[in-house]
Design a protein around this nucleic acid. Structure first.
Lengths: 347, 347
DNA sequence: TTGTATGCGTTATCAG
DNA sequence: CTGATAACGCATACAA
């Protein structure tokens, strides 16, 4: 490339092309060294006001923007953090991401969002991609943490925080709510006035759902309600799956249902209504995330309310502390929850 | 750093620390030059099978992963593309992102998602951040393209594609549907059997909504229905805003409403129901995006159906072509739409 | 307060 | 087919 003291040059095919200017261009125009430019750009105090002004003028003149890639290579920091979501379409995760993003911006990080598609293999591969991109940290969302993943995490030098997820081993920094207790309370409400309470959930054996399952069983026990496998239904998370569950629920004789996902709950509720079952008079429904979906249905749905935004925000703050090697009291942050009673439950 | 031929070294404080290995480490272990390692890693064909095997073994042994940052600096490509969303919480955009992401992966790109919060200033600033991160291209979602943005775009060397958005000037590559025609058709359905058809929309003066407004007026004209400003209501996009609109709609005497946002439509529908208005018997409602929200309400909502996934996928494909300087026939891709009739309209 | 020189981990361009 | 060696754009230790 031909030397020039401005960012426009003529290439041989005669077309004027804009060349992005580098720190050298700025230095030359300002009549200082690149080191000085670097200092000014990075807010280093040890620069005479006079030269700072000169440099800033040159920066503006050339419309100079530091190349984050080069900066990353030199500083060994990318100022980006990776976020792994199981799905782009579930508002529960979207809400967490907003919390993450807000705090990330405060600390001058950019977030790199990856979709694990709720698949363990994919999850590991996207994490590896994020690491290849040299993210300074990772926030992971989902339901469960597989063995393969845990062993990978333990070997990683990149710090990781789990948001809204449970690590049964307590090895990995985590921000979440006490799902077991929340479910215990929510199901308790139902069990207090219903003989038979069903539970509709994703895979029961892992992560959050196993905590919920435990809370569910404890609540039944407290109110001396019979536990029956038949009233525990595993399903995928989708409105349609919930809608299709009506007959199975009816068959169990349950007069109340706790559902771990709002969209599934919405599907179930609409399915019940469409088949002539009155909610909450004949069947009560309790959802788990109090997303906006719970307001779309008629009647709108009572739900556990998780502070999703805060889960994201706290996770990100947590991560910054780990990255900066600050002291952290506790590996696990448990946030408060509440139960919001609306119209799909009786009082 | 001390020279060593394995990735573990003892630091002075005596703690074993894992050092990420570089292309040099691999080269040394495999007994070749780094250039050869680079060739192997990048699938260059000009390598003897024998040495390829040696290198691959070393790569595995050291768990070597190329540093994408360094690669980016050297190659002047980041293999990441920036995606700007007006909101993380609107499923319409999430759906587009999935389309983008899928195609991006096919072409080995990672996406860097940024939230413009539907704010013009923020939008420009996040675009600048993306450029600083050296994204190879940008996909922009939203409703309107401001003058400031267009002038910025025209100066950018980073290619940009608009997804689901209108550029009235036709300067910027765009993938979308014919919102004017779609609205014309959808409103036509309502106007054919209703004297007074209202329209609920976001800001009318810009972008997509102005196209829709035009379609709305044309449909009224076609069926010789009176146009009245009073029946055109501008509002923010949210369920609550929609819900709060009931009295205003009633006041207009409209017996059918076209709504440009599904959540607003859901709010309006529920608001009408709660106030004793029967849908669709007394008021018909037509939504615009056929997101899953339209299925949550009872009755579920008729809607224009946009191929959102495809909008994202085509946008990304489009972008790859521009990045690779392939020939593109047309700057604007108009995808097909359809009207899905459900239960919030009569017949 | 400022400048010089080196390195960050790759890719790419040459020779050989 | 393979190996030096020079960029890439910046941060930073060290010198001045």
């Amino acid at each position: 490339m031909i030397e020039c003291n401005h960012k426009f040059i003529f290439r041989k095919w005669g077309k004027m092309e804009e060349i992005t200017s580098t720190i050298y261009d700025v230095a030359r125009l300002a009549g200082v060294s690149m080191a000085t430019v670097s200092r000014v750009v990075n807010g280093n105090m040890n620069v005479k006001e006079n030269t700072r002004v000169k440099v800033l003028a040159a920066v503006k003149e050339l419309d100079y923007r530091p190349n984050a890639i080069a900066r990353g290579l030199a500083s060994k920091k990318s100022t980006t953090i990776g976020v792994v979501m199981p799905s782009f379409m579930h508002s529960i995760y979207s809400r967490i991401v907003i919390g993450i993003d807000d705090v990330a911006r405060m600390y001058n990080y950019t977030i790199l969002v990856a979709n694990s598609e709720d698949d363990e293999k994919k999850e590991i591969s996207v994490i590896n991609e994020l690491i290849a991109k040299q993210v300074d940290g990772i926030i992971l969302m989902g339901n469960r943490i597989s063995e393969a993943l845990r062993s990978q995490i333990s070997r990683m030098r990149t710090p990781i925080v789990l948001a809204g997820m449970i690590d049964h081993e307590g090895q990995v920094p985590t921000v979440t709510i006490d799902h077991e207790k929340a479910t215990f309370e929510a199901v308790g409400l139902l069990a207090s006035r219903n003989e038979k309470v069903a539970m509709v959930s994703g895979p029961l054996t892992t992560g959050i759902n196993s905590m919920r399952f435990s809370g569910y069983k404890q609540a039944l026990k407290k109110f001396k309600r019979e536990f029956s496998e038949a009233r525990v239904i595993e399903t995928d998370y989708s409105y349609k799956k919930g809608y299709a569950l009506v007959e199975r629920i009816k068959a169990t004789g349950a007069t109340a249902v706790y559902v771990t996902d709002d969209e599934v709950a919405a599907g179930l509720l609409n399915g019940l209504l469409d088949s002539g079952v009155r909610v909450p008079e004949e069947v009560e429904i309790m959802a788990s995330n109090n997303t906006i979906v719970t307001n779309f249905t008629r009647p709108n749905m009572s739900s556990i309310d998780q502070p999703l935004y805060d889960v994201g925000a706290v996770s990100m703050r947590f991560l910054t502390k780990i990255i900066n090697k600050e002291e952290v009291e506790d590996k696990v942050a448990i946030l408060p929850y509440r139960i919001e009673i609306k119209k799909s439950t009786r009082q």
